[in-house]
């Protein structure tokens, strides 16, 4: 558990660090990024379960986003890898149930189950990396304000912002408590007994909730009336954000309806 907390805390911090960058992608309106990420997920999941080659053009999206945002490739890979158990498990049972030989590769049979397993794994990697990129290139508060601007009710967005704020505090305090414990417990690094971790959580909870009450006071003292206002409301620029959405949606559409790998193969063979 200590390790998981360490990872989670580090991820939260590295995420907020990466997300406060100032690249072209970072500066995009979060609404545009939400829409494109959602369109990407729909496109990637809309292919049949035996499609592999046709998913390939979609890899251009994460590659391009990494390139344009300057986010470290290692960050994206590491955070995508965090979801690896999910990714692998999602398709793991298909090879057991779908044993139809779909294709034969130089005499080796390849069953439908393995093909769909590979397809599920690929689309998982695609979708997870796109969400990872969304969270790495957009500050969480802007991400959630974007939701509000997309029509999500304001009370939902406000309490989501609060939740987001408290999670950072909580994770930081967990980190300190765990570190203090591992310093005292000597050799066994990162191994807090689960019993102890339970009591740690209790202490942490008390502290966090006390803090939350004080934060609420601090907000009230500065005229909080239930609505959190931000100084620079998001501005959707059609030239920048609109173009971003249009270009990607057009690309996804092209990938969905045109068999690009097949055309490329034909071109390569024809030459």
């Amino acid at each position: 558990m200590a390790k998981k907390l360490d990872i989670n805390f580090n991820e939260l911090v590295s995420c907020s660090t990466a997300a406060s960058g100032s690249s072209l992608v970072h500066r995009l309106d979060p609404r545009a990024k939400w829409l494109v990420t959602l369109a990407f997920a729909v496109t990637a999941t809309s292919f049949g379960k035996y499609e592999i080659a046709r998913l390939m053009p979609l890899f251009f999206y994460p590659f391009a986003m990494i390139a344009l945002s300057g986010v470290a490739v290692a960050d994206v890979l590491r955070r995508t890898a965090l979801a690896a158990p999910f990714i692998l498990l999602a398709g793991l049972f298909n090879p057991f149930f779908d044993r139809h030989v779909l294709i034969s590769l130089w005499g080796f049979p390849l069953t439908g189950g393995w093909v769909s397993f590979l397809s599920i794994t690929l689309r998982s990697v695609l979708v997870v990396s796109s969400v990872v990129l969304l969270s790495l290139t957009t500050r969480s508060d802007r991400l959630f304000s974007g939701l509000g601007e997309l029509g999500v009710p304001s009370i939902f967005v406000v309490q989501l912002q609060f939740l987001n704020r408290y999670i950072l505090l909580l994770a930081g305090e967990v980190q300190r408590i765990v570190r203090a414990h591992s310093l005292r417990s000597g050799s066994r690094r990162n191994s807090v007994s689960l019993f102890l971790s339970g009591s740690m959580l209790g202490i942490l909870l008390l502290k966090s909730m006390d803090r939350a009450a004080r934060v609420h006071w601090a907000m009230l003292a500065r005229g909080f009336d239930g609505e959190v206002r931000t100084a620079c409301p998001l501005k959707f620029s059609w030239q920048r954000d609109g173009a971003f959405v249009l270009i990607w949606v057009a690309f996804f559409g092209a990938v969905r309806f045109i068999d690009i790998p097949f055309l490329l193969f034909g071109w390569a063979v024809g030459k």
């Binding site: 009370i155 309490q159 989501l160 609060f162 939740l163 408290y166 939350a212 009450a213």
Partner: peptide
């Protein structure tokens, strides 16, 4: 209620 919701979410 709004901050309380946030806190309970964190809990």
């Amino acid at each position: 209620r709004v901050p309380l919701m946030g806190v309970l979410g964190a809990f």
